[in-house]
Simulated assay, not measured.
Amino acid sequence: MNVTRLVNFICIIVGGVVAFYAQAQEEKNTYILIGGIMLLVFGIYRTSRNIPSKFDKEEESFVKTEKEDEI
């Protein structure tokens, strides 16, 4: 497994656990909850950044376009 992917998954897991822990306490600490959510979103963002878009692929068509000659 790639090191950056491992860091991303660790951020997601730790952020989720911290956010869940901060929410589950009787006396909720808002700053810990925000920090956990930020770490979770940071890991998700870094993971989704490496997923290619389905619109990046150029579809081949039967009609080929020709470049216009410069006049």
Score class of each variant (00 low, 15 high):
residue 1 M to V: 08
residue 2 N to C: 07
residue 2 N to W: 06
residue 2 N to M: 07
residue 2 N to E: 14
residue 6 L to I: 13
residue 6 L to T: 13
residue 7 V to I: 14
residue 7 V to H: 04
residue 7 V to E: 06
residue 9 F to W: 10
residue 9 F to S: 02
residue 9 F to I: 07
residue 13 I to A: 15
residue 13 I to K: 04
residue 13 I to C: 08
residue 14 V to L: 14
residue 14 V to N: 02
residue 15 G to N: 01
residue 16 G to E: 07
residue 16 G to L: 11
residue 16 G to V: 07
residue 17 V to I: 15
residue 19 A to M: 14
residue 20 F to V: 03
residue 20 F to D: 01
residue 20 F to N: 04
residue 20 F to H: 03
residue 22 A to F: 02
residue 23 Q to G: 01
residue 23 Q to P: 00
residue 23 Q to E: 06
residue 23 Q to C: 00
residue 24 A to Y: 02
residue 24 A to G: 05
residue 24 A to D: 05
residue 25 Q to S: 11
residue 25 Q to D: 05
residue 25 Q to F: 01
residue 26 E to M: 10
residue 27 E to I: 12
residue 27 E to N: 14
residue 27 E to Y: 11
residue 27 E to A: 14
residue 28 K to L: 08
residue 30 T to G: 03
residue 30 T to P: 04
residue 30 T to I: 15
residue 31 Y to T: 09
residue 31 Y to M: 11
residue 33 L to V: 00
residue 33 L to H: 03
residue 35 G to L: 14
residue 35 G to F: 13
residue 36 G to V: 02
residue 37 I to V: 14
residue 37 I to S: 01
residue 38 M to T: 15
residue 38 M to F: 13
residue 38 M to C: 15
residue 39 L to V: 01
residue 44 I to T: 05
residue 45 Y to K: 03
residue 45 Y to N: 03
residue 47 T to Q: 10
residue 47 T to D: 05
residue 49 R to C: 05
residue 50 N to A: 14
residue 50 N to G: 13
residue 50 N to Y: 10
residue 50 N to K: 11
residue 50 N to L: 15
residue 50 N to H: 09
residue 51 I to G: 04
residue 51 I to Y: 14
residue 54 K to R: 06
residue 55 F to A: 10
residue 55 F to H: 09
residue 56 D to M: 09
residue 57 K to G: 06
residue 59 E to M: 13
residue 60 E to A: 13
residue 62 F to Q: 11
residue 62 F to C: 05
residue 63 V to W: 08
residue 63 V to E: 15
residue 65 T to P: 02
residue 66 E to N: 10
residue 67 K to Y: 04
residue 70 E to S: 09
residue 70 E to R: 07
